[in-house]
Design a protein around this nucleic acid. Sequence first.
DNA 1: CTACGTATACTCGCAGACGAGTAAAGAAAC
DNA 2: GTTTCTTTACTCGTCTGCGAGTATACGTAG
Lengths: 217, 217
Amino acid sequence: MPRRRPVSNLLALAVLTVVTQRPMHPYEMASVLRARGKDQDMPIKWGSLYTVVRNLEKHGLLEAVESGRQGARPERTVYRVTDAGRREADDWTRELLAEPRREPSAFEAGLSVMGGLGPDEVASLLRRRLELLEERIEADRRELEAHRAEVPRLFLVESEYALALLEAQAAWVASVLAELDGGTFPGQEEWRTYHQSGEMSPDVAALAERGRPEEGE
Amino acid sequence: MPRRRPVSNLLALAVLTVVTQRPMHPYEMASVLRARGKDQDMPIKWGSLYTVVRNLEKHGLLEAVESGRQGARPERTVYRVTDAGRREADDWTRELLAEPRREPSAFEAGLSVMGGLGPDEVASLLRRRLELLEERIEADRRELEAHRAEVPRLFLVESEYALALLEAQAAWVASVLAELDGGTFPGQEEWRTYHQSGEMSPDVAALAERGRPEEGE
DNA sequence: CTACGTATACTCGCAGACGAGTAAAGAAAC
DNA sequence: GTTTCTTTACTCGTCTGCGAGTATACGTAG
């Protein structure tokens, strides 16, 4: 069970891991994280950085070590990770690795409401998606190969995973697209009919209603 | 480019599509959406429902039609979708289907910080994940087959996609796990060494630093 | 008929997210 | 040497997310 984290924003985990290597002030954390491309691996919004750091401090996961100005520089606070902070980071990492979580993507949301459009339009949208996916896969693959020479595998694993999932997505989209194009998608004609005659008819809606009844959750 | 939505919460899209079928009051929207299992396809928090509906109304995507009490019931407001609302929903759906978006999962975040743990612990965490994934895949597959008889394909497509991605994830985890177990993961020994001797050494950190340099974005 | 559970239908308040803005210092151009 | 640009380093205010709480009606077991 995903225990409530004192600071739930994933940016906090990134901060903890980076500040574990050496004490830093917030802006430096941001630079290092950006240099490592961590903002590709997590949904990081830099506007949240200072809030997150402050909350980490409030919960005793970070502590300020050297606050004050050097030369004429604006004041800045250097933070160090505490023992509790290190424990939190490790525990959080364990949870993220071991426990699969259902996190529906935006695409899934799109699929679940695609009935509102007609089958032909959906096909053309998916075709577009497939093109874009293939471009990105190609680019990512190149980039990954380029890095493989210089960077230890350990730091490429997330990119490999992301790439594998993109490929799976592309394969799936291609397969549905083939059904739509070939006219072998079950119920495709009814779908088209109902869509052309104004919005979804109530009886079809009623079918959807029973989409997912009681789950043994 | 993902245009700014007047109400960006995906719950708003769900509300728009459901209220397109017939006017409803908010609690009914929730019931219908829940009955259709839409909360599985999107990250829906019911606490946000009334806020979202209010915002949709504010932006002219919904309008109140019948407010007032029936019998001794508490007052409730029935909403109808406007033309703008219908357009917004269609446009949003198109965007979600056609434009792939990078949305890093929590697992990706976990992978990107797994260096903080040792290779042996990571292996055992991944083993655990794989077990859980396989259970869930089995359960989802069963459920999907059960529904296939009663429910049109159109309404199962998101579940099929989710299942396909789970399978891809399981396959990937299994492959990395095999490398770790077989000791063929490149750099595994260095990783172990560095991890045992306290935290990551600066030179390894420096390597990570160059993880993802300038991207031609 | 009355007590209690359960479904209905919301309200509220606070924490957090994050875009946009700010301001100083150093580099660079002229 | 002064204008301008970029980088460093944050602050602020708003909006929204959402968990927890509330209140009423309806069913039903005793």
